[in-house]
Computed example of a mutant assay.
Amino acid sequence: MTTSGNWQKSSFSGGSDGNNCLELTSTTATFRLRESDSPTTILTTTPAALAHLLADIRNNTPS
């Protein structure tokens, strides 16, 4: 599996170059997430599913 793409690091990861970061990239139909310390393990999801998860987290409700 290739891990190329325009990966963006979370602003919550701080300014260091350490490997403790959440990174995100997208295609026209999906979002892809990975941890910088394990870049070959990628979680792929749709925008709708990610929005639902984030809404549940904000509302502190189980999915």
Rank of each mutant, 00 (worst) to 15 (best):
L50W: 13
A51N: 07
I42E: 09
F12Q: 15
D37R: 08
L43R: 00
S38L: 10
R34Q: 10
A51G: 07
A49L: 08
D17L: 12
S36K: 07
S4R: 08
S63G: 08
L33C: 08
G18E: 15
G15R: 01
S10I: 00
T2Q: 11
K9V: 01
T46W: 04
T30R: 14
R58M: 06
T3L: 02
T2E: 15
L50S: 04
C21K: 00
L22G: 09
P62H: 12
I42Q: 04
S10D: 08
F12G: 06
T41D: 11
S13L: 00
P39M: 10
F12I: 04
T40I: 03
T46M: 03
L33V: 07
R32Y: 12
L22I: 09
A51P: 00
N59F: 03
G15N: 08
D17K: 07
T3H: 07
S10L: 03
E35A: 15
E23P: 04
T40M: 12
L50E: 06
L24E: 13
L24N: 05
D56G: 10
M1W: 02
N19T: 05
P62I: 09
T2D: 13
H52Q: 10
M1L: 06
P62W: 07
A29K: 14
P62Q: 15
N60S: 13
H52S: 11
E23H: 05
G14I: 00
A51V: 02
T45S: 11
I57W: 06
S38D: 14
L43F: 09
E23M: 04
L22P: 00
L24T: 06
S16Q: 05
S38C: 14
L24F: 05
E23Q: 14
T3I: 04
T3R: 12
G15D: 14
S11N: 14
G15V: 04
N60G: 15
R32C: 15
T44P: 06
I57L: 08
A29W: 10
C21P: 02
T25G: 03
T3D: 06
T40D: 15
I57G: 03
N60V: 06
S36W: 03
S36I: 00
Q8R: 12
S4H: 02
L22D: 07
T2Y: 08
T40F: 08
R58K: 13
P39F: 09
E35H: 12
D37G: 15
C21L: 01
P47A: 03
F31P: 01
L22Y: 03
S4Y: 05
P47N: 10
R32P: 06
G18I: 02
L54P: 03
G18W: 04
N20S: 12
S16C: 11
P47M: 07
K9D: 02
T61Y: 05
G15E: 15
L53W: 14
T27C: 08
A29V: 09
E35N: 10
T41Q: 14
G15M: 04
A55H: 13
L33R: 00
D56E: 09
T27E: 12
C21T: 00
N60K: 14
S13W: 01
K9Y: 03
H52K: 12
A48P: 01
Q8A: 07
S4T: 11
E35R: 08
C21Y: 01
S16M: 05
